[in-house]
Nucleic acid binder design. Structure first.
Length: 113
DNA sequence: GCCATGGCTAGTA
DNA sequence: GCCATGGCTAGTA
C-alpha cells in the first residue's frame, strides 16, 4: 500500500462519531490537496476490508455523494444514529459537524502494516 | 481506466 | 453542466 493510501485510511479511521470530513479535506490532510478522487477510489474499494467509517465522508457541499439508493439510505441512517442529521436533499450541516484533525494528530508508525 | 470530486461558468428566472 | 484533476491498479509489452 502506498503512503498516500495509508494516510487516507488512517485519517478516515480517526473521524469521531458525530463528525464528517469532505473528500477534499481528507486528501489535503493526507498531503495531496487535489487528490479528492483518490479518496473516492479508496473509500469505494477499501471500506469493507479496513472497516472504515465511510458514512462520515461527504462532498464539499456537505452532500451525501452516493448515488445508489440503498447505500444512500444506509449512510443517512448511520449518520443520524450518531447525531448528524441530513435534510431532504441529503445535506448535512458542515458548520456544525465538520471534523478538523488537531495538531495532536499522529500518523501511524511505519512498521504498522 | 477507475472513481462516492471540486470549482468555475453559462444560462435561466 | 462542463471538464481538469491524480494516485493507483489491471493488464499488456
Amino acid at each position: 500500500m502506498q503512503p498516500f493510501t495509508r494516510r487516507v485510511i488512517h485519517i478516515i479511521q480517526n473521524i469521531p462519531e458525530g463528525y464528517v470530513m469532505t473528500y477534499g479535506q481528507i486528501a489535503e490532510a493526507a498531503g495531496s490537496p487535489r487528490g479528492a478522487r483518490q479518496v473516492v477510489r479508496i473509500l469505494h474499494s477499501m471500506s469493507a476490508a479496513h472497516k472504515l467509517p465511510w458514512h462520515r465522508v461527504v462532498n464539499a457541499k456537505g452532500m451525501i455523494a452516493l448515488m445508489d439508493e440503498e447505500s444512500r439510505f444506509k449512510q443517512i441512517l448511520y449518520l443520524s444514529s450518531e447525531g448528524v442529521l441530513a435534510d431532504e436533499e441529503g445535506r448535512v450541516d458542515l458548520e456544525q459537524h465538520r471534523y478538523q484533525p488537531g495538531e495532536d494528530f499522529s500518523w501511524p508508525d511505519e512498521e504498522e502494516h
